[in-house]
């Protein structure tokens, strides 16, 4: 079976090492701002990440995570405000409970913590964001392409 994961030849080349695609769902107030701070501080991190902004982690539906894997992500990062810091007071608490169950459900089905990552990154934690992205990319790279064996991946 061939690996369905391919990147545009322009940058990756065909023989290059596996470069994972990482989709991040982040909240607007903390992690998006933390990523902005990483930028204004000129911190460097891996270019594999694509951020999708939502107002709050409360809005980050588990079905989005599922869809991300289905549509080509090798890893998913979900990140928002630290407990108690939610701009909407409790959106992240609601989110945390959903994720607690959802990540365990996905773990049972083979999508484990090497691919699905959760974090709290505040607006002040630009360094944490940069380090986090690098670490997640490294872990997903090690886990390899999201296996063609995995039923969550759509095959064309």
């Amino acid at each position: 079976m061939t690996d369905t994961h391919t990147k545009p030849a322009s940058s990756q080349g065909t023989q290059g090492p596996f470069e994972p695609t990482l989709v991040a769902f982040v909240c607007n107030w903390c992690t998006y701002a933390g990523a902005d701070l990483a930028g204004t501080s000129r911190l460097k991190y891996a270019a594999n990440i694509r951020i999708i902004k939502l107002p709050c982690t409360g809005r980050i539906d588990p079905l989005l995570v599922l869809k991300a894997f289905e549509s080509g992500a090798d890893g998913v990062l979900v990140s928002g405000c630290h407990p108690g810091d939610c701009h909407y007071t409790s959106g992240n608490f609601h989110a945390r409970r959903r994720w607690a169950i959802f990540h365990r459900l996905l773990e049972l089905t083979g999508i484990d913590s090497s691919r699905l990552h959760f974090s709290w990154v505040s607006a002040a934690e630009g360094q944490k964001f940069a380090d986090l992205v690098n670490d997640v990319v490294a872990k997903v790279r090690q886990a390899g392409p999201f296996d063609a064996v995995n039923p969550a991946r759509r095959r064309s």
Binding site: C56, G58, R59, D61, P62, S90, H94, A95
Partner: peptide, 8 residues
């Protein structure tokens, strides 16, 4: 506009 309702 947090959208927590949407996800549940």
């Amino acid at each position: 506009g947090c959208g927590t309702c949407v996800a549940v």
